[in-house]
């Protein structure tokens, strides 16, 4: 699998990562060699093999749909970690023009 600078830029955009020109160049070769290594999986016949997403013999685990206030700490403490907050809100740039 040949990885081009364009591929790197496309994936970086999907991943929401701003990369410098230097980084783009530095990620191309390792990505290519790792993907090349990974290609060995094509030797395995998996036509009749089901996928494993996790190993536990369980599907859904249900609970009552009830709010648990302070499960992740108090609102005040959580907002203290915000780069920018206003009242009870996280503040970001205007989303809709």
């Amino acid at each position: 699998m040949k990885i081009t600078k364009k591929d790197v830029e496309h994936v970086a955009r999907l991943a929401r990562l701003a990369l410098s020109e230097d980084e783009k160049a530095r990620y191309t070769a390792p990505l290519e060699s790792i993907l090349e290594y990974i290609d060995k999986l094509n030797k395995v016949d998996t036509a009749h093999v089901p996928p494993t997403s996790h190993v536990l013999p369980m599907s859904n685990v249900w609970r009552e749909d009830q709010a648990e206030p302070n499960r992740l700490g108090s609102q005040t403490d959580i907002l203290k970690n915000a780069p920018e907050a206003e009242g009870p809100f996280f503040k970001v740039k205007k989303v809709i023009e």
Binding site: V8, V11, A12, R13, A15, R16, L17, A18, L19, S20, E23, R26, Y27, P30, L31, I34, L35, V92, K93, K94, V95
Partner: peptide, 25 residues
Amino acid sequence: ANLLELYEKSRGEGFGPEVKRRIML
């Protein structure tokens, strides 16, 4: 300049090289 750029720049500046490599992969 906008929210998209905020995501991209914050992540680009905040993550180190191996983390970026694995996110890319």
